[in-house]
């Protein structure tokens, strides 16, 4: 089972991003679940979501304690929350970062999703849309297939620029 923990802030679309990644895995023929860990529903508060992907039905509902991958949509959260908690020794980290943040001891993939969205003017209610470039980046990591990533974006977003955002993130992420 591949387990992902996603850190975001309320209003950034982290919960939806988790659903979309799980949906893409489902389209790949895998079993997948996405679970948000809610506190009070307020903007700006740190939010955690969990994604599980497996070849067999998933029977686990509790939180992910030892993720294989940690996704950080807002790097300022790293000052408040220990995003590396429980990360497997060979676990990896994806950070939406404008300054190329890297985490010691873990393979880190920094991509500037925010600038990709802003350059395409992908803004919703004042916030840059991070879901679609994130899906592109996660596809590059091989967690989901490129085809499923495309299909998820096509089914969920009408605006063509979302596909462009995903493609740019796919290209910017360096393996």
């Amino acid at each position: 089972m591949f387990e992902i923990r996603l850190h975001s802030r309320g209003g950034q679309g982290g919960v939806t991003a988790a659903k979309l990644i799980a949906y893409a895995a489902f389209l790949d023929g895998k079993y997948a679940t996405a679970t948000p860990l809610y506190g009070a529903e307020r903007r700006g508060a740190p939010v955690v979501s969990f994604i599980r992907i497996d070849d067999r039905p998933i029977r686990v509902y509790s939180q992910i304690r030892n993720p294989d991958l940690v996704i950080v949509l807002d790097e300022s959260i790293m000052e408040l929350v220990d995003v590396l908690k429980g990360l497997k020794p060979d676990g990896e980290v994806f950070v939406n970062s404008q300054k190329g943040t890297c985490v010691e001891g873990h393979r880190t993939y920094p991509v500037d999703l925010t600038s990709i969205s802003l350059s395409l003017d992908l803004v919703l209610a004042g916030n840059p849309i991070l879901n679609t470039p994130l899906i592109g980046a996660i596809a590059k990591l091989g967690v989901i297939s490129q085809e499923s990533a495309k299909q998820v974006i096509a089914e969920t977003f009408r605006d063509e620029r979302n596909v462009e955002a995903a493609l740019r993130a796919y290209e910017e992420l360096k393996i």
């Binding site: 659903k19 996405a34 948000p36 809610y38 998933i58 509902y61």
Partner: peptide, 12 residues
């Protein structure tokens, strides 16, 4: 159904 654990989990 268990609040959040089942109401909010996304599954096939």
């Amino acid at each position: 159904l268990d609040g959040f654990l089942l109401t909010h989990i996304t599954q096939t």
